[in-house]
Design a protein around this nucleic acid. Structure first.
Length: 301
DNA sequence: AGTTGTTTAAATGCTT
DNA sequence: AAGCATTTAAACAACT
């Protein structure tokens, strides 16, 4: 748990846009979808800055959820009582922060085509995620795995370690350039900028380096909903140290990234079979659902 | 009544 | 400077 009231750099505004914060929250949960209230909670738990002015930033965040096509709304099933819908990332949104900055995307993600023209039809992506979650749950039940129960929607299903969405919190952390000595350099450029850089960057990023994100996820060992962090993320010690240029160009970046960092639908060659990067166990039937063909999307502008 | 979700509009700041 | 992404504010509807 974060330390309440601690007056540190962690009280400063984190260098993440609402979009990246929301994506982080969504990716932190095994089912990759969260209700609004849980997104709020995630952000407030991890970033003390957002424990204040809640009306302001939560309104902004809601605006972002509605306004940006990279977020999709997933209706609750009857067996998932509660307020509001779930929010998830559009399966095709890929790595929106491929430029290395979580403050500003290079391009906005925009959905094209049928989804906009026929909104009355439930979005395939939403259906896919629901089905995906369901199938993974039944697969899990079959294995007899014991995982913590989370009311309503999140049953603690863990992701296979082979795929990490670019927004997964561990991937975001992984982009920080770690130096053996403990000094850390950020892959996030200028805005690090807005931070007091006279001191060590590690000090400027306490929410990341000083037990921030990892520590705050329920105290180093447990992440959201009591799921052990290590089952969700690579531990900090196993995070790849990836030197990312301060001003990264996609062309310069992509070839050097480990597969799991560039492993997004959009980063694949168009001819690559999607099943190769399925988020679910390759042995599960949910693979058939991982790439809804009707989902057409593109980054625009 | 409070929360959730959508939409419009304007301001701000970064990128090209 | 223009274009664009993001932030902020606000109004409003729907829902619990």
């Amino acid at each position: 748990m974060p330390r309440p009231g601690r007056n540190t750099y962690s009280d400063q505004k984190p260098p993440y846009s609402y979009i990246s914060l929301t994506a982080m929250a969504i990716q932190s949960c095994p089912e990759k979808m969260l209700p609004l209230s849980e997104i709020y909670k995630f952000i407030m738990d991890r970033f003390p800055y957002y424990r204040e002015n809640t009306q302001r930033w939560q309104n902004s965040l809601r605006h972002n959820l509605s306004f940006n096509d990279c977020f999709i709304k997933i209706p609750r099933r009857p067996d998932q009582p509660g307020k509001g819908s779930f929010w998830a990332l559009h399966p095709n949104c890929g790595d929106m922060f491929e430029n290395g900055s979580f403050l500003r995307r290079r391009k906005r993600f925009k959905v094209l085509g049928a989804e906009h023209l026929a909104p009355s039809k439930p979005p395939d992506a939403a259906h896919y995620l629901q089905q995906h979650a369901k199938l993974r749950l039944s697969a899990l039940a079959a294995t007899g795995a014991h995982l913590p129960q989370v009311p309503g929607y999140n049953l603690g299903v863990t992701q296979p370690a082979t795929f990490k969405h670019p927004f997964a919190i561990e991937n975001i952390i992984a982009r920080e350039y770690k130096v053996p000595g403990g000094l850390a350099f950020s892959a996030v450029p200028p805005m690090a900028a807005g931070y007091p850089l006279h001191n060590q960057l590690a000090g400027a990023w306490p929410h990341v380096y000083n037990g921030g994100v990892i520590d705050a996820m329920g105290g180093a060992d447990y992440g959201a909903y009591g799921v052990p962090i290590k089952s969700l993320c690579h531990g900090p010690q196993t995070l790849p140290a990836i030197p990312v240029p301060i001003k990264a160009t996609p062309a310069a970046l992509a070839p050097h990234l480990p597969a799991f960092l560039s492993n997004s639908p959009q980063s694949l060659s168009p001819t690559s079979p999607q099943t190769a990067t399925s988020q679910s166990s390759p042995a599960t039937p949910s693979d058939a659902l991982t790439n809804p063909a009707s989902l057409q999307s593109v980054a625009v502008h």
